[in-house]
């Protein structure tokens, strides 16, 4: 039953560019990109209880690393570019995660918020590399002889990478590492008493979260084809947090649903740009009041098969 649903869903996703207009293909790519960020953020905030309002910063690092690499080395295979973007961002995540070990709650939120501003300033100041405020046109991604220029080609790239990253996240969540992260969220002292190295896993959560967000940032650069610092402002970080709150903290399917809902809302509300914070504020408050577990909590949970 579940397998059949997965196969059917996969078939629809594969045929998607043939079924819908170009713009929806582009929009679906954005949803998948945001879903990867939301999963990464959820591993940090939903699983490990470390709130971040700085993920636009990681997203920007990934986008700029991928864009600059492609400008300098146009022949680089896109898979390698994305891996490098993810790894570079993971290093930044490590560098942020270590000093953040002593912070929790609001203080951690403030520190990550500040990190987001620092990244934007850095992009502006490194204008010889990033072209600063003028923005950077991202060359077409290449995979050997293939140039991924059309919306459909980009969509398939995003979909393939997204599927891999979702599968990896599901595996992580189900095994030792995911359980250790959840244990930290539930009780730090009991996690330690069970042999979980708090500092190592909290830092690891930062690095993995940054890796996901960096890869997504790289994909974003290729999908939109042009990046500039103002795309990565603090409101984007808030959008990412909104995705996991709407979708469900600590849930991978919830991350994907939340990313879809927020991305579509963003698209529909494009005409009301100035009211966006108002709408998002209302949605967040409504969600916390009436659906604190997010959309995922409203879907009946499967009982795990007895083994």
């Amino acid at each position: 039953m579940r397998r059949a649903a997965l196969v059917a869903g996969g078939a629809v996703l594969l045929a998607w560019p043939l079924l819908v207009p170009r713009y929806f293909v582009f929009l679906t790519s954005l949803i998948v990109v945001n879903a990867i960020v939301a999963i990464g953020l959820n591993l940090l905030s939903g699983y490990t209880n470390q709130l971040s309002f700085g993920h636009a910063g990681f997203f920007a690092v990934g986008a700029y690393v991928a864009a600059v690499l492609t400008v300098r080395e146009p022949a680089l295979p896109v898979v390698l570019t994305l891996a490098l973007a993810g790894l570079a961002t993971a290093l930044v995540g490590l560098a942020l995660g270590v000093p953040c070990l002593r912070l929790e709650g609001l203080y951690l939120a403030m520190a990550t918020l500040a990190f987001g501003f620092v990244v934007v300033e850095a992009i502006l100041n490194l204008d010889w590399l990033t072209r600063g405020n003028d923005g950077l046109a991202v060359p077409v991604a290449r995979l050997g002889p293939l140039a991924l220029a059309s919306d459909a080609a980009k969509y398939y790239l995003v979909l393939a990478v997204g599927a891999l990253m979702v599968a990896a996240a599901v595996n992580i969540a189900r095994t030792r590492t995911g359980r250790a992260l959840l244990a930290i969220r539930e009780s730090e002292i009991a996690a330690q008493a069970s042999g979980v190295h708090l500092a190592a896993y909290k830092t690891l959560a930062f690095a993995v979260s940054a890796f996901y967000t960096g890869v997504a940032g790289g994909l974003f650069a290729f999908v939109v084809g042009f990046i500039s610092p103002d795309a990565f402002d603090v409101f984007l970080s808030v959008d990412f947090v909104a995705m996991i709150i709407v979708g469900g903290l600590g849930s991978i399917p919830g991350s994907i649903l939340g990313a879809a809902v927020i991305t579509l809302l963003y698209d529909w509300l494009a005409a009301f740009q100035n009211y966006r914070p108002l709408f998002f504020g209302l949605i967040l408050i409504g969600c916390m009041l009436f659906m604190p577990g997010g959309i995922a909590s409203r879907v009946p949970r499967r009982t795990p098969p007895a083994r």
Partner: peptide, 11 residues
């Protein structure tokens, strides 16, 4: 633990 420290939201 005296006041129990189970991981409450986990099975």
């Amino acid at each position: 633990f005296q006041n129990t420290e189970v991981f409450r939201q986990l099975s």
